[in-house]
Design a protein around this nucleic acid. Structure first.
Lengths: 348, 348
DNA sequence: CTGAAAGCGCTTACAG
DNA sequence: CTGAAAGCGCTTACAG
């Protein structure tokens, strides 16, 4: 590989000192450089294809201009993967706009938050976005308390580390209110995950709030628990089908789980939405192409990425920030029965 | 933020020189350190939470232990996003295993490969994986010729830059041979993209090879062109439905396009697979949950990521490598008609 | 087996 | 307006 030019090469070619090269290239505000000198330096740099050595800059400036995204893999890996491209896109665009780089670090189940400590202490990044934080590790809290810029994507109960999340309670509530408005009263729920997950508790809470506001106290047999995947949705729906008289609608707090629930209905010979109406949560790309298309709560993955990026950048600049709960929007398709459709014309 | 410990702090606490600290922590092979000294250094480092300053190491060692993933966004952004999590996961795991970090850099349509030059010349990374390379830029070839480790994900015609891709020709051929084996002879094709895309040309080629081997010369009206998304698939299928006598099967060289094609069939009141059999390409997660489930050619995203990681690491180590075409596997579900299914029992 | 010294390529006070 | 010098925190020959 060719040797790469240094600021010395640029200085020599332009006939100035390395100081001047640095001043020009960094647009140093104080130092006033003559237009002619500036031009010569810029031209020399361009000609040599010079870009300052990142490590040298980082060392002397004491900052890396890098944010690390810690991406937890876990039992919900498939589920979360669906959000990765959007989140990454949103985060990267905000960072790039401010001249920051993005270090991507997936974390396997067996790895501990020790990884974050290592990245932080070794100054690989100026700040961290932790996606899918786990509650059982003190490292994060310790780093946060020591002032290290940390922002969570997803909530971690019992800490004051700033987080970004979707407003799960309001989103679920919207979904259920929509069903209520359509005249349903016997509305069941399948959660997206076990209640050990914050999001599952919150979505269930939204369901309860909507029902109570309508004067309905849902009995426990109307509530079943999903576990991220389709199989869990199928099982849960089979359980709900035992309820007598039959439920007329079910809110499934995850699109993937909803796909399994829909399968169970098909197996049981029930039509959607004529026999049972369905509303999902997440608005995964596939939701628009299920049969019938799934009415669901849209989760704005890119906006989450941007928000998380904005917060971590503010933290890096030393500002204090407060957590953000992004609003969701209900996407009405055919599975809720709000739209008239012949099964043929509304496949997608 | 607290000040972070340096090797000097560790040296002082352990009662040795910084040289020794470095030797111990880097497991320097030559220098034999007494077990007692080693233990003291390790203990001191642990106690202080010391990790060497990344920038300082990079500067002195002349390498970053980082690979950059350049992710092109383009007209096919949605399409490619579906592969991002798998690719990223495979790539990151290979890199991590060898102690490398991953820098993620999305590239918008308006940005040029100049970005790669900047990252390379500024020594932000030791090597690059370029996903979705574009043919119209000389920067990549120039960097490659200067010996910079570059590996492409997806092919770039007319260069000898090593690439990793799926074997599109063989995959398409498999798909079509499967339909032929089921007794179909009037088999149409909808490409995944315009023929300006290498993968589209190759998949069409696989189709042609299979047909010719069966003694069938498909007329041009059997061939329609998709353009990544569902809408293009719908249009293309509508065109294919004009063919008389009717085709009995269609190979759609992209699952997303296939979803649109399937929609067109629904609109036309045709059943899958009874009236027209369908085979897709890619095996996106949603393929298992279309109605009926889509028989398709599986593209191993994670394996692509691992392969691309292995190649770039070898290039960084100075080895020369040759491009790799990974095999695909046909996933037989219900849309091809090979599996008996009642429409109810085989929704998923 | 261990330490003193040089040097990686920058930026940044500090002089002039 | 521009240059000489120090220093960021490491690793690595080189001595001892």
């Amino acid at each position: 590989m060719d040797k790469v030019p240094t600021s010395y090469d640029v200085a020599r070619l332009a006939g100035v000192s390395r100081t001047t090269v640095s001043l020009v290239l960094n647009n140093a505000p104080a130092a006033h450089i003559s237009p002619e000198t500036r031009r010569r330096v810029l031209e020399a740099a361009r000609q040599l294809g010079y870009f300052p050595h990142a490590a040298a800059r980082r060392l002397v400036q004491g900052r890396t201009m890098t944010v690390a995204l810690i991406w937890h893999r876990g039992p919900d890996a498939n589920y979360r993967d669906a959000f990765l491209p959007g989140l990454l896109q949103g985060l990267a665009s905000v960072l790039h706009q401010q001249g920051y780089y993005l270090l991507f670090r997936p974390m396997e189940v067996h790895e501990s938050e020790q990884v974050v400590l290592e990245l932080a202490q070794g100054r690989h990044a100026d700040g961290f976005v932790i996606s899918g934080p786990r509650a059982d590790d003190p490292v994060l809290l310790d780093l946060h308390e020591r002032g290290f810029p940390l922002v969570l994507h997803g909530q971690l109960p019992g800490t004051d580390i700033p987080f970004v999340d979707v407003d799960n309670v309001a989103g679920a509530r919207q979904a259920v209110e929509h069903l209520l408005r359509l005249g349903h009263t016997r509305i069941g729920i399948i959660t997206n995950a076990p209640l050990s997950y914050v999001s599952a508790r919150q979505r269930l809470e939204g369901y309860r709030l909507a029902m109570r506001a309508a004067g309905i106290e849902p009995p426990s047999e109307w509530i079943q628990y999903g576990n991220f995947d389709e199989a869990s949705g199928r099982r849960a729906m089979q359980a709900l089908l035992q309820v007598r008289p039959r439920l007329s609608a079910v809110f499934v707090a995850s699109d993937m789980v909803a796909v399994g629930a829909r399968y169970a209905l098909w197996e049981a010979g029930l039509r959607v939405p004529e026999d049972i109406a369905l509303v999902g949560f997440d608005d995964l790309p596939l939701a628009a192409y299920t049969v019938p298309p799934l009415t669901t709560v849209h989760v704005p993955a890119q906006a989450l990425g941007r928000a998380v990026g904005e917060l971590v950048l503010q933290r890096i600049q030393g500002e204090s920030v407060s957590s953000r709960r992004l609003p969701t929007t209900l996407v009405v398709r055919a599975s809720c029965g709000a739209r008239k459709f012949s099964s043929r014309a509304n496949l997608t």
